[in-house]
């Protein structure tokens, strides 16, 4: 069983003439079987944090570890293999292939690991069913609602049976009933497969489905909701 661990991670971006501290000394451990929620206003560095965990970005200082391996310093090839074998990613901009079916969209990333498309489809099918798209295998994204598209993206994250789940606003486009279903699904996946999951969200409902809650503001991480957010949500 592997945990995700961020150790004193700092990531800065240049913006115009100045530097933005997107992530400013964050340490965080996510253990197998738990789904952790990360709140924070827009631009607070949540997505950057997620990209660091996925090996998409390297931190300026500090390190990211998964399963005892430091993934923040992997060469590009190994980093790709890490994402392809170990990580399930759901991003806000889901970049689906507009003319391809839901099934192909979910299956396509398995091709990176040398699987045939036919096999990949077989493997993707149960996941699409599980996110409630069993009746829409052949639909192209254009014919699906935003929520349904989001669910394709979630199915795509799960088809490689990941050992780490990273999701950015997975319920951002869903109504509250569908949101609860998806949140429950993500929680169940983490529990069943005993894998760590990190959930970046705005959705106050997510609190009820996660083990722990953190707030990121100005690049800094705090356990629990901060006062501003609590006020906004009237908590």
């Amino acid at each position: 069983m592997s945990s995700l661990e961020l150790r004193k991670v700092i990531k800065h971006y240049p913006s115009g003439g100045e530097t933005v501290r997107a992530v400013d000394g964050v340490s965080l451990s996510v253990h197998p079987g738990e789904l952790v929620a990360l709140y924070g206003p827009s631009g607070s560095g949540k997505t950057t944090l997620l990209e660091l965990a996925a090996g998409l970005l390297a931190p300026d200082t500090g390190s990211v570890h998964f399963g005892g391996r430091e993934i923040s310093r992997l060469p590009p090839g190994d980093s790709a293999i890490y994402r392809r074998r170990d990580v399930g990613l759901v991003f806000q901009a889901f970049h689906l292939i507009s003319g391809a079916s839901a099934l192909d969209n979910a299956a396509v990333k398995l091709l990176a690991d040398g699987m045939t498309l036919r096999k990949a489809r077989e493997q993707a099918r149960p996941w699409l069913e599980r996110v409630g798209l069993g009746a829409r295998f052949d639909h192209t994204p254009a014919r699906l609602s935003m929520g349904e598209r989001q669910r394709i993206a979630i199915a795509r994250a799960l088809v490689n049976e990941p050992r780490l789940l990273l999701t950015d606003e997975p319920t951002g486009n869903l109504d509250s009933k569908r949101s609860r279903e998806i949140l429950a699904l993500l929680r169940d996946i983490c529990e069943e497969r005993e894998i760590p999951g990190l959930l970046v969200t705005h959705d106050p409902q997510a609190i009820s489905f996660t083990s722990r809650v953190f707030t990121l503001r100005d690049g800094r991480l705090r356990e629990g909701l901060d006062a501003e957010l609590a006020l906004a949500h009237s908590l």
Binding site: S176, P204, Q205, I207, S208, V213, L225, L231, A232, H233, S234, L235
Partner: peptide, 17 residues
């Protein structure tokens, strides 16, 4: 000056307190 919460959010509020 506080905002009135919306009904569908109440479940979340209760749980987190």
């Amino acid at each position: 000056g506080t905002l009135v919460p919306f009904p569908e959010r109440t479940a979340a509020r209760k749980r987190s307190q």
